[in-house]
Measured scan of single mutants.
Amino acid sequence: DYYEVLGLQRYASPEDIKKAYHKVALKWHPDKNPENKEEAERKFKEVAEAYEVLSNDEKRDIYD
């Protein structure tokens, strides 16, 4: 669930989505996790995908 990936509720505002994305993206950035790079890359891609969908009103409506 994209909301879960970003740690958000379904009623999150666009500002909340952006803030959550930056927080979680920093947490899972591969450069910040050199000891667990493969998992970090996978999680970072999930976070980016979730943000791409939830930050676009049209894609978010379809997802919801």
Rank of each mutant, 00 (worst) to 15 (best):
Y2C: 01
Y2T: 04
Y2H: 09
Y3D: 03
Y3L: 01
E4N: 15
E4Q: 15
V5M: 14
V5S: 09
L6V: 01
L6T: 03
L8N: 03
Q9G: 12
R10P: 15
R10G: 08
A12N: 03
S13Q: 15
S13Y: 06
S13T: 15
P14A: 14
E15I: 04
E15H: 01
E15M: 07
D16G: 01
D16V: 02
D16T: 04
I17N: 02
I17M: 02
I17Q: 04
I17V: 15
I17A: 02
K19S: 12
A20H: 04
A20P: 00
H22L: 12
K23L: 14
V24I: 12
V24D: 04
V24L: 14
A25V: 15
L26G: 12
L26Q: 10
L26C: 13
L26Y: 07
W28D: 07
P30C: 04
D31I: 06
D31K: 06
D31R: 05
D31W: 02
D31Q: 10
D31C: 06
K32P: 02
K32Q: 09
K32R: 11
P34W: 11
P34H: 15
P34G: 11
P34Q: 12
E35K: 10
E35Q: 09
N36S: 12
N36E: 06
K37A: 10
K37H: 14
K37P: 08
E38W: 06
E38R: 12
E38I: 10
E38A: 13
E39D: 08
E39Q: 08
E39Y: 15
A40L: 03
E41A: 11
E41Q: 15
R42S: 12
R42W: 09
K43P: 00
K43C: 06
K43V: 06
F44G: 05
F44P: 01
K45F: 11
K45W: 04
K45C: 10
K45Q: 15
K45E: 13
E46K: 12
E46N: 03
V47C: 15
E49Y: 02
E49A: 10
E52Y: 07
E52H: 11
V53I: 10
V53E: 02
V53N: 08
L54D: 01
L54N: 00
S55P: 00
S55I: 15
N56K: 12
N56H: 11
N56E: 05
D57P: 14
E58C: 11
E58N: 10
K59F: 05
R60E: 04
D61S: 12
I62N: 14
I62G: 15
Y63M: 06
D64R: 06
